[in-house]
Simulated scan of single mutants.
Amino acid sequence: MATAWDRQRAALREEITETARTLFVEKGFDATTVDEIAQAVGISRRSFFRYFGTKEDVVLGDLTGRADALARALAARPADEDPWTALRTAMLDSRSETFTDVRSDLAITRMMRDTPSLRARKFEKRQYWSEVLTPLVAERITEGDATVRAAAVVAAVLACVDIASDVWAESGGTADIVAVYDEAVAALRD
């Protein structure tokens, strides 16, 4: 059970995130400083870094937590389900974020794609996704080198997620991101 301190800490983390997102959308990622975010929230720079290791981490959110949620959802899928189907269903089951503010979500998605430091940090954090998902996918592979095949499937799935996000952003948020993901996977599996 979360303590009052835990709830207060989570609320401040959310306030920092929302304030930073607003500033990033208004001014751009590179033009927004940690000091501006801290000042807008009413905290010190030092307090900011108690909640986030880098400015990039504010944009990327908890990618590690999302990977863990996806791994739990994948582990809960039927053992006889093929890796592609299991991963797709697990991703849909573990989605904790929804696109609620299209303007802001589009800006953040484009920012993540177009800002080199964000892109690098995202791929650095995505390595963790591969590390936790590959062994779970390998359990579903019965032929060849399961580890190699599982690593390839996970890498391909993550690439398809990125493609779907890019197409969604380029469409101005009108593309069905799940349908685009399915189309990208179908291209690989044909």
Score class of each variant (00 low, 15 high):
T3Y: 00
T3S: 12
A4D: 13
W5V: 11
R7G: 00
R9V: 05
A11G: 08
A11M: 09
A11N: 10
L12C: 07
E15P: 00
E15T: 14
E18T: 10
A20Y: 02
R21P: 01
R21S: 11
L23Y: 08
L23K: 08
V25Y: 09
F29H: 00
T32H: 05
V41L: 12
I43T: 12
R46F: 03
S47K: 14
F48H: 03
F49Y: 15
R50N: 14
F52Q: 07
G53H: 07
T54M: 05
T54P: 01
K55N: 07
K55S: 08
D57L: 04
V58S: 04
V58T: 11
V58C: 07
L60D: 04
L60K: 04
D62M: 06
R66V: 02
A67W: 06
A67K: 04
L70N: 01
L70Q: 06
R72P: 01
R72A: 15
A75C: 01
A75S: 12
A75F: 03
R77K: 13
D80L: 09
E81D: 13
P83N: 05
T85M: 11
L87F: 08
T89L: 14
A90N: 04
M91E: 14
M91L: 15
T98N: 10
T98M: 11
V102M: 08
V102Q: 09
R103C: 01
R110A: 08
M112T: 12
L118H: 03
R119L: 13
R119Q: 11
R119C: 07
F123K: 09
R126K: 09
Q127D: 12
W129I: 05
S130P: 00
V132C: 04
L133D: 01
L133A: 04
P135E: 02
P135Q: 01
L136M: 05
V137G: 05
V137A: 07
A138H: 05
T142E: 15
E143W: 10
E143P: 00
E143L: 07
G144S: 09
A146Y: 05
T147H: 11
R149V: 09
A150Q: 02
A150S: 04
A152N: 12
V153A: 03
V154F: 06
A156N: 05
L158P: 02
V161D: 11
V161W: 07
I163M: 12
D166Y: 09
W168M: 06
A169D: 04
A169P: 05
S171D: 12
S171V: 12
G172I: 04
G172P: 03
G173D: 04
G173A: 06
D176C: 10
I177N: 08
V178Y: 11
V178N: 09
V178F: 12
V178L: 11
A179I: 04
A179Y: 05
E183N: 13
A186F: 13
A187L: 15
L188I: 12
R189H: 01
